[in-house]
Amino acid sequence: MSYALRHGANQMGLLMATDGFLYVEELLAHSQFHLYSLEDIERVVATNDKQRFKLRSHPEDGRLQIRANQGHSVQVRDLELRPVLTGSPDCPAEAVHGSYLGKWNSIQLQGLSRMKRTHIHLASGLPGEDDVISGMRKDCDLAVFIDVPKALADGIEFFWSENGVLLSAGDSEGKILPKYFSRALRLRPTRAVNWFRLVIA
């Protein structure tokens, strides 16, 4: 379901609206989902620990719809993202990107990249901290902290998704460069702050 709602709707012949919603009945009628029921869909939405999905009744025809709140590789024009403004109460001093130690050499030289997705995903803190629901995979062993006000001052935009993930398309090349890194944290096997020599480009 995550693939259909984030990446593959068009290839699967499913009609996605500009706000990312699909009709649940059309999803369940697809050959890949015909063995599932509405109750299965509702259970996945209700129990997803990162609140990745949203159900709603269509505002005009009342039919049930579903969408992914973030994580798309396809353009979703009307995703209802909330922009982060400098100095606003919801503007964090730092945001965290989860990655892997094996990628650090590349990250510290080239920065973070959105790659094939529409946004770089960031969290407002580390997993387990207050109000942090989503923003990084559970198996990440590296946390890279971004100076959000500094990046905003240089024109890099950030947005809050409906499930509390901080999203950024990065610069014109889809990157957040190392000059916006404030610190890094090794998460496993034990936590260690600034265990590397940070290279600023």
Rank of each mutant, 00 (worst) to 15 (best):
A4E: 12
G8K: 06
Q11I: 15
L15E: 13
A17D: 07
D19Q: 10
F21N: 00
Y23W: 02
Y23V: 01
V24T: 10
E25Y: 08
L28R: 06
H34L: 13
L35I: 12
S37L: 03
D40T: 12
E42Y: 09
V44E: 02
V45S: 01
T47W: 13
D49R: 13
Q51R: 13
F53N: 06
S57Y: 15
D61H: 04
L64V: 08
Q65C: 11
A68P: 06
N69M: 09
N69I: 05
G71A: 08
Q75R: 14
L79N: 13
L79K: 05
P83K: 14
P83F: 12
G87N: 01
S88I: 02
P89Y: 07
E94W: 09
V96C: 05
V96N: 02
H97Y: 04
G98D: 08
Y100M: 04
K103T: 12
Q110F: 15
Q110T: 14
M115V: 08
M115H: 12
T118C: 09
H119R: 12
L122R: 05
P127D: 00
G128W: 01
M136V: 06
K138C: 14
K138H: 14
C140M: 06
C140G: 01
V148P: 03
V148F: 07
L152H: 14
E157H: 02
E157A: 06
F158K: 07
F158Q: 06
W160P: 01
G164V: 01
A169G: 11
G170Q: 06
E173Y: 14
E173T: 14
G174C: 02
K175T: 03
P178R: 05
P178K: 07
Y180P: 01
A184Y: 08
L187K: 03
P189H: 03
T190N: 15
T190E: 15
A192D: 10
A192W: 05
W195C: 07
F196I: 13
V199Q: 14
V199F: 12
